[in-house]
Design a protein around this nucleic acid. Sequence first.
DNA 1: TCTAATCATCGTAATATTGCGATGAAGCAA
DNA 2: TTGCTTCATCGCAATATTACGATGATTAGA
Lengths: 110, 110
Amino acid sequence: MGVTKSEIFTDKQNRLAGMMKALAHPARIAIIQYLIKANACINGDLVEELGLAQPTISQHLNELKKAGLIQGTIEGTSVCYCIEPKTWALYQKEIGALFAAYKGDANCAC
Amino acid sequence: MGVTKSEIFTDKQNRLAGMMKALAHPARIAIIQYLIKANACINGDLVEELGLAQPTISQHLNELKKAGLIQGTIEGTSVCYCIEPKTWALYQKEIGALFAAYKGDANCAC
DNA sequence: TCTAATCATCGTAATATTGCGATGAAGCAA
DNA sequence: TTGCTTCATCGCAATATTACGATGATTAGA
């Protein structure tokens, strides 16, 4: 069906999955890494930096924006994107908690 | 196209995106959380625990196994799954590094 | 052996994602 | 205004994902 039965899961599970999904594409990873590296938030440079067409970049930027990970500011004819610190910190915390929940030394009964 | 141009990204970017993708579904989050909680690795209980059909659970388990996050051991007629500590630690490290790369105090030029 | 239980795989339907060309919207410069 | 630049959106094609019924494979127990 391609449709996720999100109603049978908790809000937290859906939120965590949504966070992962926002970063579950190499182009979006690359965009985030570039934004971190360039600090000063750049935009259309991404089209040259990555080898993807402009509409495709725009689409990925929009998904990152929908996820709250980045914010864009109109700067004349161009748009300046940068990371949204609050959501970034939230992601870091919640995803970190997921991984921290497993204590590696717990012995598996298998 | 639904096809990702993975050849234009670095191995690291593709690997990170793959990690995120493995956890980019609430059912898989729920499975992982249940495995952590139950510690002793359980299997078919997931079919009752989550509200999904058995083939669907099996499919998600297979994706987690392909990602290396879990391992399954045949136990008579049932199969016992548990978290694979090595890959789990690797995920934790690499994803943690991605988030840690951004210093929230960096001021955006926007 | 026969049966029940448990899980994986196959096949299919519905929907989502990815990518891009074409086109629009908005600003700046002449 | 006209033209140029920059970005977003639309619409499409190709592929991927999600879910499940049906069916197989394997094992335990009667």
